[in-house]
């Protein structure tokens, strides 16, 4: 129990270390995005071509990750699925971030009855466990990717709306806002040119930490058959399809699983780095 003494100041964030981390993980995220964009060019085989001659082949040779029970190349399908998994998550986070921020900013800036109503709506939406509501909405609407995104998006914007509202609320009474108002600057301009840049950092940091979680949600819905519909390649639905043949073709499960684990890890680390960066910068100045 002696070593208690040295630990306490361990968590001080070092600007340089955080910066290095941010650069490394930004590069990895960029690499993932590039891979998913050029996937059609680097796929060794057609991800949708079934072949009775190549059913359930082990990894190696023409098929780096083997083939699934329909003879499709698992590696090509993992690459094709990267686009769906990564871009649907980034898209959903971007849309909820944009919509939530604007709604929250309006609420915080103008206040009044609209603010009260919207904040009570977010209260009610937060009363639902997110995945429970997503499963129910996707299940009722019918399973496809658009409905899955809607189902998750219904609740995800509230996070940004509440944050943006709080931040806007706390700076709208600052003197520089009063000065802008006195000089006749329009409300829109004050909000988008002067308030938004001031509240942007914590919001974008939150958004970055949400990408990994969103990916888990989307793949979870796809796994349940409520998201991407087979034969379209998506990691969650690929794992679901292949798990019935796990004994015969374990590589058809392992391939997308590893891709998913690595991708989510990278996005989580990236999100943490962005968040730490905003904290370091926030303290430093």
């Amino acid at each position: 129990m002696k070593s208690f003494k040295r630990k306490t100041k361990a968590k001080k964030l070092n600007y340089k270390a955080v910066k290095v981390r941010l650069i490394i993980f930004s590069a990895l995220v960029a690499a993932l995005i590039v891979i998913s964009l050029i996937a059609p060019l680097i796929e060794p085989n057609d991800p949708y071509a079934t072949s009775s001659a190549n059913m359930r082949q082990g990894p190696g040779g023409q098929f780096p990750f083997g083939t699934d029970s329909l003879g499709r190349c698992v590696f090509s399908r993992v690459l094709a699925g990267a686009f769906t998994s990564i871009f649907s998550s980034i898209f959903l986070v971007a849309v909820s971030f944009g919509a939530g921020t604007i709604i929250g900013m309006f609420c915080g800036y103008f206040g009044g009855i609209v603010d009260t109503i919207i904040m009570r709506i977010t209260d009610a939406l937060l009363a639902f466990p997110q995945m429970v509501l997503a499963i129910a909405v996707a299940g009722v609407l019918g399973g496809n990717l658009t409905n899955a995104l809607i189902a998750i998006g219904i609740t995800s914007w509230t996070l940004y709306a509440r944050l943006a509202r709080g931040q806007t609320y706390s700076i709208k009474n600052e003197t520089f806002i009063a000065a802008l108002k006195l000089s006749g600057v329009s409300n829109m301009r004050i909000m988008f040119r002067h308030i938004l840049p001031n509240i942007f950092r914590p919001l974008i940091a939150t958004a970055c930490t949400q990408i990994g979680t969103t990916m888990i949600y989307i793949s979870g819905l796809s796994f349940l058959g409520l998201g991407v519909i087979p034969p379209a390649a998506e990691w969650g639905s690929m794992i679901n399809e292949a798990r019935g043949y796990f004994q015969l073709t374990p590589w058809a499960v392992i391939g997308p699983s590893i891709a998913m684990l690595i991708t989510i890890l990278i996005f989580n680390f990236f999100g943490d780095a962005v968040r730490d960066m905003t904290e370091v910068r926030g303290n430093g100045r």
């Binding site: 888990i216 793949s219 979870g220 796994f223 796990f246 699983s257 989510i264």
Partner: peptide
């Protein structure tokens, strides 16, 4: 903890089934 955070629960279930059952 990082890996646990990045693993969706269905993936853990599938892997557990593989190692302990199959």
């Amino acid at each position: 903890s990082f890996i646990g955070n990045a693993l969706p629960n269905f993936l853990i279930a599938v892997l557990l089934i593989f190692f302990f059952c199959i």
